[in-house]
Design a protein around this nucleic acid. Sequence first.
DNA 1: TAAGTATTTTAGACATGTCTAAAATTATTA
DNA 2: TAATAATTTTAGACATGTCTAAAATACTTA
Lengths: 218, 218
Amino acid sequence: MYTLAEENYLKAIFHLEHETTGEVSTNAIAESMETKPSSVTDMVQKLAEKKMLVYKRYKGAQLTEKGRKIAASVIRKHRLWEVFLVEKLKFHWDEVHDIAEQLEHIQSDELITRLDKFLGSPDFDPHGDPIPDKHGVLKRTEKKLLSELEKNQKGVCVGVKESNSDFLQYLDKKKISIGTKITVRGKEFFDGSMVILVGKDQFFISKMVAENLFVQTL
Amino acid sequence: MYTLAEENYLKAIFHLEHETTGEVSTNAIAESMETKPSSVTDMVQKLAEKKMLVYKRYKGAQLTEKGRKIAASVIRKHRLWEVFLVEKLKFHWDEVHDIAEQLEHIQSDELITRLDKFLGSPDFDPHGDPIPDKHGVLKRTEKKLLSELEKNQKGVCVGVKESNSDFLQYLDKKKISIGTKITVRGKEFFDGSMVILVGKDQFFISKMVAENLFVQTL
DNA sequence: TAAGTATTTTAGACATGTCTAAAATTATTA
DNA sequence: TAATAATTTTAGACATGTCTAAAATACTTA
Ligand SMILES: [Mn+2]
Ligand SMILES: [Mn+2]
Ligand SMILES: [Mn+2]
Ligand SMILES: [Mn+2]
C-alpha cells in the first residue's frame, strides 16, 4: 500500500507535530530521521502530491487527515508489536524498539486485528506510550514530566520520553518501571536535579532523568 | 544484513534446487518469481559476486553453502511465523502464506530464537512442511504423494505440495487436514483419479488433488 | 534596511532493482 | 549439419530514494 520510506516519513512528521506547533520544518525531519534536508524536500514534495500532507515551500509540512491516519496506524502497529515482544516473547523493554521498527511495516489489517485481540487490546506499550485505536485515535492522557513536580508531590511513573537503551537500563538499576510510585523529596532550582523516594530507596537524579520520565500526579 | 530482493532470490533458488537436479535455470527462477529472465540474470550475477551462488553463463545457478544457509534461515522464519499465525492468532492455514512472506524478512536472531521457544520448537509448519533448524538443516521425511499409493493402501496426510488458498479450502470441505487418515479405495490408470475413504466418507478425487497431497504410508 | 547567517530547495549524480528490445548462445529438428 | 527455435544475456531506460554542491530564500543583527 505505502512504501517503507513513506511510512517512516509520515511517522516522523506525526511525532514532530506533537512536539511543537505549526508546520514541521525540513531540518527537523532530517534530523529526526538521520538523513539530509535535501532528501527530505524530495520526499515531502512527493507526499504532498499524494495528499498525505500540505507542503509550503520554505515553510514546512503539515499532515492531512489521510497522512495522520497512515502515521497513526504505523504507530499502532509499532506499539502493539512492542507489547507482543515484551509480554509474550519476554524481551526486556529496552530491546524491543528496533525490532518493532521493522514489524510496524508488515501490511495486513487482519493481522493487527488478531494481534490486538491476542494481546488483550492493550492501551499502552511497554514504555507507557498510548496505542492508537484502529481509527487512528490517540487517547490523550494527563501526564507530566517528573521535572514539573514540586517538593513533596507524588506521582506514578506512566512512561518515558526518550526510550533509548541506556536510559531504560538506568531506570531498571534504580528499580523504576511503569507503575512505580515516586515521591519528590528535594529539588534544586539551579540545575533541576532532584532527590526522590522510590520504594524505600531515596536517591539523587539529574535534570536529564527528571525530564525524561512521565508521571501522573497522585 | 541482506536485502529483501537477495533473500527472495536465494529462497526461490533453494526451493528449485529441491525440485530438480543440477543447476537452476534463469527461466525457472524468473517463472517462480514472476519476474523477467533479464532481471534474474542481473541479480544472479550480483549474488555470484557475493559468493552466495556459483553462476555459469548460459548454464544456470547453484547455491553455495553460504547461500544455502541464508535461504534456509529465511524459510525457517517463514514457517515459524506461519505456525505463530495459525496456533496463536488462530488464522486459517490458507490465510497465512502472504503475511509470512513479509515476516520472513524481519532481521533479528534473538527474535527467532524466542519465537521458536514460544511456539514450543515446532518441527513442521501448518502445511506439513519441515522447519529448518537454526543451522539451516532440514529434516528429510519419508513422504510420498497420495497419487503414488495403490488400491487399498492407507496413509496419513502429512502435508500439501501446492498450498494455494483454493486447494486448501477444497481440503477443508472434504475434511482433510494434517493428520487425517486416507484409504485408497480405487484408482483409475487412464486419468489418475481416485476414490478415497476419509473418516466415514468415500468420494472421488482428481489426479490433480492426488498429486498435491503428501502422505506417510501406514 | 542591508549584510551576513541559517535554512531550504534545486540540479545532477549514484545505487538498487526492474523492464523492453536486441544480440548472443544453446538446443532442436529436419 | 544447417536452419530454426528456445533460452539467456546485454544494452539502455526507468522508478525510488539517497547524496553533495550550489543556488535561492528567509532570518538575524548591526
Ligand atoms: Mn519503540
Ligand atoms: Mn514504545
Ligand atoms: Mn508459506
Ligand atoms: Mn507453509
